[in-house]
Amino acid sequence: MRHAEQVTFGGSALDRAGEIRNDPAALRAARDDPDARAILFWRGKPLISPARPARLVRLEMDHPVLADAAEETILLGRENGAARFAFDLSQWQPENVDEAALGGFLDPSEQRHPALGDDMVFAELRRVMTWLDPRDAELAATGRAMFGWHRAHGFCAACGSRSDMVQAGWQRACTVCKASHFPRTDPVVIMLITHGNSVLMGRSPGWPQGMYSLLAGFVEPGETLEAAVRREVFEEAGVQVGEVRYLSSQPWPFPASLMFGCAGEALSREITIDPVEIEDALWVSREDMMEIFAGNHDTILPARKGAIAHFLLENWLADRLD
């Protein structure tokens, strides 16, 4: 697919500086570089300047706010030869935090640190991902996914002892049994399943009223992407799928997935949903989907902008899947 890397979180060609992650001297030099910058996160929320065009904030490495950050940092990569390090401020406790909103489907709350200007806020990445340019989006997604992985994997899976962050944040090492642990990315297939002029859409329980998207599911061990597409569509909607082809991928740091966008041709139109998996599924014609994307449909909302489902549907409507 020629437009594959135009998907949100893709296509910025970030230099990840992998060759210096295990080089203490090179890391020290990278941190001491006057052009190095800190990128901040609070409970997975990146620090941004939300005024349009929004941008991911990059602070100097000696900024006073970093006194509230955890000691361990993550090397995200380099921009124009200068390092970018992710700092976690989750131990800072803002006033009047709405805990119920945090981590919700679309958290609208913003947090402002007193050591930063009023034009800087910590904001939920799912809400602001389309505000950022590709480089900012990739840096934000990488930092969010990595801090999430460290929070969930603080103990050795082999012996249960606490592990330490090493290799500039890209590995955890157990000091007891010496096991090494690396960041996880879970493969997920998301499927543009068509039959004639229609596409198969579904919704999960708990989604906002009117929200539908493409069917999706995790790839199982020992399974190809094509097999996963056929299995997931049949399990969720009872629809048999024939030919399957890969289209595009998207890192999805909520918490740590890699979405594989695929196109598949349905062999039948009859739908039998699994109510444990999804709440509803239906076929939507190309004409109706155009009305949905225009915001003119009575009952169905367009797929969320920034998500690969929206990207695939948009390219399907424009006949740009080749």
Results as ranks from 00 to 15, higher is better:
Trp252His: 14
Pro253Ala: 11
Leu258Gln: 14
Val284Cys: 05
Val244His: 07
Glu279Pro: 06
Leu267Arg: 13
Arg230Thr: 02
Pro251Lys: 04
Glu243Tyr: 10
Pro221Glu: 15
Ile273Ser: 04
Arg269Gly: 02
Phe260Lys: 00
Leu282Arg: 15
Arg231Lys: 14
Ile271Tyr: 02
Tyr246Asn: 12
Gly238Phe: 08
Ala281His: 05
Thr224Gln: 10
Glu243Pro: 00
Ala228Cys: 13
Glu235Gly: 05
Glu220Arg: 15
Trp283Ala: 06
Leu225Glu: 03
Leu282Trp: 01
Leu258Ser: 10
Gln240Pro: 01
Leu282Ile: 06
Ser268Tyr: 02
Glu235Trp: 12
Ile273Asp: 05
Glu265Trp: 09
Ser248Lys: 05
Pro251Tyr: 06
Ile273Gly: 04
Ser248Phe: 01
Phe234Met: 07
Thr272Tyr: 01
Ile273Cys: 04
Leu258Met: 15
Ile278Gly: 05
Ala266Cys: 08
Val244Cys: 09
Cys262His: 03
Arg245Lys: 15
Ala256Thr: 06
Trp252Cys: 07
Arg245Trp: 14
Gly242Met: 08
Ile273Leu: 14
Phe260His: 07
Val241Cys: 09
Met259Glu: 06
Leu267Thr: 04
Glu277Trp: 11
Ala237Asn: 03
Leu258Tyr: 07
Gly238Cys: 13
Leu247His: 09
Gln240Glu: 15
Met259Gln: 03
Ile278Ser: 07
Glu223His: 11
Val284Pro: 02
Trp252Glu: 04
Ser257His: 14
Val239Thr: 08
Glu232His: 15
Ala263Cys: 07
Val219Arg: 03
Ser248Asn: 09
Leu258Pro: 01
Asp274Met: 09
Cys262Ser: 08
Val284His: 09
Ser268Phe: 04
Tyr246Met: 11
Thr272His: 10
Thr272Ser: 09
Pro253Trp: 01
Phe254Ser: 11
Glu243Gln: 15
